[in-house]
Write a protein that binds this DNA or RNA. Structure first.
Length: 569
RNA sequence: GCCCUCGUGGUGAAACUGGAUAUCACAUUUGGCUUCGAACCAAAAGUCUGCAGGUCCGAAUCCUGCCGAGGGCACCA
C-alpha cells in the first residue's frame, strides 16, 4: 500500500517529485497512512506547504482505495484507506500471507552461530543463531534461495590451547593414561581456559602450544592417528564437539546446509594473501608477518599471515568468502557475528575489496549486540561464561513450574516446556534492534508476561482454542455478513506483508517482533470485548473468519522468528 | 592516545531513518474469571530524550563541544 500511495503521489506531482516518505500513521485521527511530500515540495518551490498539499489533493482526486484524504498540521496529507481494501486482503490470508517477491531468484548465503569446536556454546552463539535463523527465514519468505552455513573454528591457536590442556590432563607421570580418556565436552571449555592461561604465563608451555598448533594445521581429516598423539586427541575432541553442537542447533530450529570447518579454508586464504602480497596489496611487516595497512583507508593495520607463516582469522575469512562463492555463486553473502568484530570486519572487507572486489561488494556484515553480565563482559578465556544450554535449562524450569497443574500428557508437557522456553529466549534477543547489547538479567530479560515470547504464543493458542470451539459448535467461518464497522484487528492484519518487507530490507527482525506484539495485543483486546463463538450472533461466522486470519498471520510471523506456535500451552 | 557504537519515565526497550501530542512492556496503585484459555483485559500515575550550543517550517534522530558507558586498535577468533 505504501508503494501504491507513493506511485499515486508521483503521478500527481509529476517530475517535481522530491525525496518524500509515506508512513503508517501512529495516530488513528491521522488516517492510516500519511505523507510529508507537500512539506518538502513547498520548500523546494517556495510556497506555503498547506497550499501545496491542497494542490496535490486536488490532483489525486477520487480514488477507490481511499475513503478520505485530509490535510492536517503543517501540511501533511493523511490517507484513510477504505474498508473494502482491508476486507479484500483479509479474505486472502493463508499460509503464504506475507510472502514477498523482492528477493525472488536471489541466492543468499548466510553465515551465523559460528560456534567453536573446543569451546562451549555460550550465550553469544545463541544470539547469533537467533538473529541469523530469523533473517534466513525472512529472506526465504521474501523469495530468496537461502543457504545456511556455519563457519566453525576447528583450528588455530585457540584450538591448540585446548588440545594442549587435554593432552596434559590425559597424562600421568609423563605417559598417557587410558583411564582418563575419553574427554567430555564440558572439559573442553575448561581446557581452553587452562591452555590460554598457560600460554600467557609459561614460555615453555607457550612453545608446546605453538608446536601443537602447527601439527593441527597439518592434520588430514581422513587419516587415522594414534589416540595418544596430539592429532588423535584433536580428532576425538572434534568429533565430540560436532555432535554436541548438532543437538543444540536442532533444538533451536536451525538446520545448516553446510558446516564449514575453518581448516577447510586455510590454504585458500593463504594463497589469496600471497597473491595479494605480490600485487602490492599486502606488505611484509615486522618479523616477516604479512599485513594489510588499513591506515591508508582510515582503518587500522591487521596481520593476515603471522610470523610463523600461518594464516590468521583475516586470511581465513578471505578464503572463506571464496570457498562460499565457488560453491554457491551467491548474489549476497551475509555474515552474522557479535558487534565486537565490527571494526575487524571493516578492515577485512576493505582488504577483500582489493583482492576480490566482486565478493566484497556482495558481502554484508551484521554485528549483533552482546549479552553482558551486570558485572561486565563474559569471557571464555577466564571461563566466566553462561552456556547456552544452562540458560535454556533455567528457563525450562520456570515453564515447568508454570504448567505443572495443567491437564496435559507427559509428551505435551515436554514439548510445551521446550518450545515456550526457546520462544521466550528468542523473543528477548530479537525484540530489540540487532546492534544493541542486552544486559543479562535473568529475571527481567526472560519474561512470560507482557512483551514476551509466551505472550505471542499464548495469543495464538487462545485463538486456536476459540476455533476449536467453533468447530464443536458447528459454526463455519464466512464473510457473508460483515459488521458495519471494521476494527483495528483487520487493519493490523493487513499491515503484515509490509512489516515483513521492512524487516527484510533493513535486516531487522525486531520490526516483526514489535508488530506481532502489537497484533497479539489487538487480538486480546478484541477477544475481551467480543464473544466470537456465539450461535445467537449473526456476525459470529465473520468473527470466526477474522480469528482464523489472525491465527494464520500470527503463525506466519512467529515462524519467521523461529518461535514455535502451539496448539496448547 | 586514536577509531567505532551508544546515552530516552524507577527498570528494559521503541520511535517506520528529519515529521504531528515521544510509544510499549515490566514494576507501582486500582478494577475485572459461575460467561470462547486471567501467561489475559481495563484504568491511574510516571519521560519534554546525558549537558550546552547550532542547522531547519520541524530534531531523540543531523553538525560542534563537553560529560558518562561499552567495544576495537600486528601476529586470538
Amino acid at each position: 500500500m505504501r508503494d501504491e500511495i507513493k506511485k499515486i503521489i508521483f503521478k500527481a506531482v509529476r517530475a517535481e517529485a522530491p525525496d518524500f516518505s509515506v508512513d503508517i500513521s501512529d495516530d488513528k485521527s491521522h488516517g492510516d497512512y500519511s505523507t510529508n511530500v507537500a512539506l518538502i515540495l513547498a520548500k523546494k518551490i517556495g510556497k506555503n506547504p498547506r497550499e501545496v498539499a491542497e494542490m496535490i489533493k486536488q490532483k489525486i482526486g477520487e480514488n477507490k482505495l481511499f475513503s478520505k484524504i485530509e490535510i492536517a498540521g503543517p501540511g501533511f496529507i493523511n490517507f484513510f484507506i477504505s474498508e473494502k481494501v482491508f476486507l479484500d486482503s483479509l479474505k486472502k490470508v493463508d499460509d503464504d500471507f506475507g510472502r514477498g517477491k523482492e528477493l525472488k531468484n536471489k541466492k543468499i548465503i548466510i553465515d551465523y552461530t559460528d560456534a567453536n569446536l573446543f569451546k562451549e556454546f555460550h550465550i553469544g552463539h545463541l544470539m547469533s543463531n537467533s538473529v541469523g535463523e530469523s533473517l534466513s527465514r525472512i529472506f526465504e519468505f521474501g523469495g530468496a534461495k537461502v543457504k545456511r552455513v556455519c563457519y566453525q573454528s576447528d583450528i588455530g591457536l585457540n584450538v591448540a590451547k585446548a588440545v594442549w590442556a587435554v593432552i596434559k590432563r590425559s597424562k600421568k607421570d609423563g605417559n598417557f593414561d587410558v583411564s582418563i580418556l575419553p574427554i567430555g565436552i564440558f572439559e573442553l571449555g575448561q581446557a581452553y581456559a587452562e591452555g590460554d592461561l598457560a600460554y600467557k604465563n609459561d614460555e615453555n608451555d607457550k612453545k608446546e602450544i605453538i608446536e601443537i598448533n602447527k601439527k593441527i594445521y597439518n592434520v588430514d581429516l581422513e587419516k587415522k592417528y594414534s589416540t595418544f598423539s596430539a592429532e588423535g586427541r584433536y580428532l576425538e575432541g572434534r568429533e565430540k564437539s560436532l555432535k554436541y553442537l548438532e543437538n543444540i542447533y536442532k533444538k533451536l530450529g536451525t538446520k545448516f546446509d553446510e558446516l564449514i570447518p575453518e581448516s577447510k579454508v586455510v590454504d585458500l586464504g593463504k594463497k589469496i594473501v600471497e597473491k595479494g602480497l605480490r600485487d602490492g596489496i599486502f606488505e611484509k611487516g615486522e618479523n616477516g608477518a604479512v599485513i594489510f595497512r588499513g591506515e591508508r583507508y582510515g582503518l587500522h593495520t591487521r596481520v593476515f599471515i603471522n610470523s610463523e607463516g600461518l594464516p590468521t582469522y583475516e586470511a581465513k575469512d578471505l578464503g572463506l568468502a571464496e570457498f562460499k562463492y565457488k560453491k554457491y555463486k551467491y548474489d549476497r553473502s551475509v555474515v552474522v557475528t557479535a558487534n565486537e568484530q565490527n571494526d575487524y570486519f571493516k578492515v577485512m572487507l576493505c582488504a577483500m575489496d582489493k583482492v576480490a572486489p566482486k565478493l566484497a561488494e556482495r558481502t554484508k556484515h551484521i554485528g549483533h549486540g552482546m549479552m553482558r553480565l551486570p558485572e561486565g563482559k563474559m569471557s571464555s578465556r577466564t571461563g566466566k561464561v553462561i552456556t547456552g544450554e544452562s540458560l535454556i535449562e533455567k528457563v525450562e524450569e520456570l515453564v515447568k513450574e508454570k504448567i505443572k497443574d495443567r491437564e496435559l500428557s507427559k509428551e505435551e508437557k515436554k514439548e510445551i516446556t521446550e518450545k515456550v522456553a526457546i520462544g521466550a529466549i528468542k523473543y528477548s534477543i530479537l525484540k530489540q534492534s540487532i546492534g544493541s547489547d542486552i544486559i543479562y538479567d535473568f529475571d527481567k530479560s526472560i519474561s512470560f508476561e507482557g512483551d514476551s515470547g509466551p505472550y505471542l504464543q499464548y495469543s495464538y493458542t487462545r485463538a486456536e482454542s476459540v476455533l476449536r470451539k467453533a468447530k464443536v459448535e458447528k459454526i463455519k467461518s464466512s464473510f457473508k455478513k460483515i459488521p458495519e464497522e471494521i476494527t483495528e484487528l483487520e487493519k493490523a492484519i493487513y499491515r503484515f506483508p509490509e512489516i515483513v518487507l521492512q524487516a527484510s530490507e533493513n535486516y531487522e527482525p525486531h520490526f516483526l517482533v514489535l508488530y506481532l506484539t502489537e497484533l497479539a495485543g489487538i487480538f486480546n483486546r478484541y477477544y475481551a470485548k467480543n464473544k466470537i463463538v456465539d450461535k445467537g450472533d449473526e456476525f459470529s461466522p465473520y468473527k470466526i473468519a477474522l480469528t482464523n486470519a489472525f491465527a494464520t498471520t500470527m503463525k506466519n510471523g512467529m515462524k519467521l522468528l523461529a518461535i514455535n506456535p502451539l496448539e496448547k500451552m
